[in-house]
Structures are given as structure tokens and as C-alpha cells.
Design a protein around this nucleic acid. Structure first.
Lengths: 226, 226
DNA sequence: GTCTATATAATGATAGAC
DNA sequence: GTCTATCATTATATAGAC
């Protein structure tokens, strides 16, 4: 008899052992990193270490299963947040509980690099692309000469700044980390709002020169009028 | 007979064995990460693995010696670049050779987190602080309501974006990585110049609200007039 | 100072009993 | 399906010969 595999609610303790191991691994990976030994994961799942290998075959396969699980949770949280107009991107990414685990897991995946890092960053970029396009369409965000380059760069920049905050923070639980992010909010929101509102440079000479030099001869997009 | 310990020029092959091991470790750590086994480092240094333990005692001590060495190289490169008015910060960070090793080593140190990450980021922030203050004094950079928060945030953001580029790039040598950074320059310079020149938002409402809400009651710095 | 050989510890993966 | 016991690998650190 197989119980439902937590297609939505989750948190039920009567799951398939495979699902329980996977969820325990997601939690351990978020909390202690991907080098967490099988013994720790098995203990968290309430099973023996050998059973992990029995169900997943190898550590790489377990990691892959956790990656897809976290990506699914991310998309669930994303659609739930899009339905709530009051939630900003950083507000729900730093919510405690499941969102905190997803956020820290993604940070650790980016930290570890490789294809999983690219996959998670692509998902975040997809998210930012729609938000950015909506903002431009609504007139609250200035258009760019290269929208795709901008959304990628801003996503990498935002994720990178968050990753740096994570890397210099002491080792804690996901909930404690996102709480520290919110606590230090004033240190980042003011500079960020200044930058997004007023820019950094007093003159547009550097941008003008660059556009004339690089984007000009190749027939780049015309300068936005907004 | 002890030869000079490479106080400046370096690259001499007649160094103390300890220095040769340290330099080999710096190169291996930059190229293959801090998990490089002793065998690889010993082979690169032309010594036996046991000699590493004999000279440094433990792997943590070797790592610490490499950290201070790289920090010294960074400061040497920094002062050399400050003497050259034509060099920008990213231009000499992405120069091939010794600068590339220093850059990638620092990226890997930040990736690994902990106290070394904080130390390297502090040095980079110190560097940015003077550049930013000079720019504000020269009138090319807008003043901020909180200069210290801005310099920290912008440094973390810039380093974070570079780190993300590094983490999603395929494993290569430091020289190849910084070359790829320069090759992809147009993907990041245009969005960055747009952001630094024009900002992102069309309205200053969010900033005004935030300043009134948070910085106002606590007697924050007045809005810059530039 | 330097090397060879070894001790020790930890981990992922395997084999077989229940 | 699950567990216990074991294997094989890897890496750091140590001991002692030269």
C-alpha cells in the first residue's frame, strides 16, 4: 500500500521510504551542505544508510532527485506568490519554513556550481524575465537596450549578492539565515533603491561612449526614450 | 644556504622548499579548488607528499599560508594598478598570469566561505571604499545617504556576480577563465552602465517612501543634492 | 631536510540475511 | 523492503630510515 507521494501538502510522515529519504536529504543538504554523509541523512529519515543506496543507487542520483524536488517546490512557491500581489520576490524567498529550505538549497546548489547551478539560475532568470517585462510594460521599469542581457546580469548580480551574504554568514539553519537576511535588510535596501532610482554615475558619458562604440556599428537597439 | 624568498619578483625556481610548496599549492588551489590532495600539490612542487606535512603541519595551516600569500600578492597588484591611471579595477583583475591566479583564488576562497571569505571581501571592500570616495570627491559618482552601506553592498554585488560567472563556467585554468570574462564583457558592461547611469526605476516613489519611512525618523543623512 | 612506508579515519558502495 | 556487516577507496597525518 503506497500513500500519496506528497504531491501538494507534504509533511505527512506516512510517505514512501524513498520520498522520506529524499525529503530528509533535501533538508540535510540545505542545512549542512551536499557533503552530508549518508549516515546523517539516514538518521534524519529514520532508516539505515544502506537503504539510501538501495533506493537511489548512488549519491549523484540522490542529489539529482533532490534537485528536481527542490525545483518543483520552487515553482509551486513561485506560482503561489504570483497569485499574491502583495508579495515581492525577496519577501517570499526569505519566508521561514519551506521557502527558506528552498532558498538555501538553491544557494548551496549555485555555490557547488556545475549543471545544477546553471539550471537553478535559469529558473530564477525566467522568473525575473517576466517580472522585468511586466515592469517595463507597466512603465515602472525603464526599457533596456538589451533586455535579455540585463535580466541575466541583474539576476546573476542579485543571486550573487545573496550568495555572498550566505557565504560570509555563520553556519546556521535555513530559517535562521533568512531571518538574518531580513534583519540586515536596511543595509541592502537603501543602497539598492538608490542605485535603481538614481544610478551611480553623475554623467552619461561612459554609457554614451560605449553605446556609440559597441552597440552603434553593429546596429544595436536604439536608445530607449523613457 | 637560503635564497631570497621571492619578496618581489618571484618565479625563481631556487626557492626554499617551503615557499615552493606554498606557491605550488596556491596554483593548485586556484586551478582545482581547495580539495586538491597533497599528492597533486607535491607533484607540482617536485617534492614528496610527506614533506608538505613536515613543513606546514596540517592542511589547514597550508591553506592559511596560501591565503596570506595571495592577500599579499593582491595588495602588490593593487598598488601597482593604482600607479597606472589607465587601469580599471576589472581590467587588472582579469589580466592573465599572476593576477588571474589571484582573482580565481579569491573567488574560490569566497566560494568556500568562512573567515577567509570575510577577509578577502574586506580587502576588496577597502579597495572599493577609496575608489568610491575618490569618485564622489571628483564629482563623477553620486553621493549616497549611507556611503558605507553602499560600498559594502556594491562590493558584494560585484563580487557575487563575478562568482556566479565563475561557478557556472566550465572548469578551466585561471587564465582561460579571466579570458572568458573579457570575452563576455559586452553581456555585462552594457546592463551595468545602463544601471549605473540611468538606474532601473522610472519613479523615485519607492526610494522616497523608504527614506521617509526608515531613514527619516532615525535622523539619517539628508538626501544628496548632486 | 627529504623520502618511503604505514597508521588511522571517513565515506560510498556492495553482499547477503531476515 | 529493510537492515547489518563488510569491502574498497581515498586522504591526512605519523614514524622512522637516509
Amino acid at each position: 500500500m503506497r500513500t500519496a507521494e506528497a504531491s501538494d501538502g507534504r509533511a505527512l510522515s506516512d510517505l514512501t521510504a524513498r520520498a522520506r529519504i529524499r525529503d530528509a536529504a533535501v533538508g540535510c543538504f540545505a542545512e549542512h551542505g551536499f557533503d552530508t554523509p549518508f549516515r546523517t541523512i539516514a538518521q534524519a529519515a529514520g532508516v539505515s544508510p544502506g537503504l539510501i543506496t538501495h533506493h537511489f543507487g548512488s549519491k549523484a542520483a540522490l542529489r539529482a532527485a533532490c534537485d528536481t524536488e527542490v525545483l518543483q517546490r520552487y515553482h509551486r512557491l513561485k506560482t503561489a506568490a504570483l497569485a499574491d500581489p502583495g508579495a515581492t520576490l525577496t519577501s517570499w524567498l526569505t519566508a521561514p519554513g519551506d521557502a527558506a529550505v528552498v532558498t538555501v538549497y538553491m544557494l548551496r546548489a549555485v555555490q557547488a556550481g556545475g549543471q545544477p547551478a546553471r539550471d537553478f539560475l535559469d529558473s530564477l532568470t525566467d522568473h525575473a524575465r517576466t517580472l522585468m517585462a511586466d515592469g517595463v510594460a507597466a512603465g515602472v521599469i525603464r526599457p533596456s537596450r538589451d533586455e535579455e542581457a540585463r535580466v541575466r546580469h541583474l539576476t546573476h548580480q542579485a543571486m550573487g549578492a545573496m550568495l555572498v551574504q550566505f557565504l560570509i554568514a555563520p553556519d546556521t539553519t535555513p530559517d535562521v539565515f533568512v531571518a538574518s537576511l531580513r534583519a540586515r535588510e536596511q543595509d541592502v535596501v537603501l543602497p539598492q533603491l538608490e542605485l535603481y532610482t538614481e544610478g551611480l554615475l553623475t554623467s552619461s558619458d561612459m554609457l554614451d561612449d560605449y553605446v556609440r562604440l559597441v552597440a552603434g556599428p553593429t546596429g544595436g537597439a536604439p536608445a530607449p526614450t523613457a
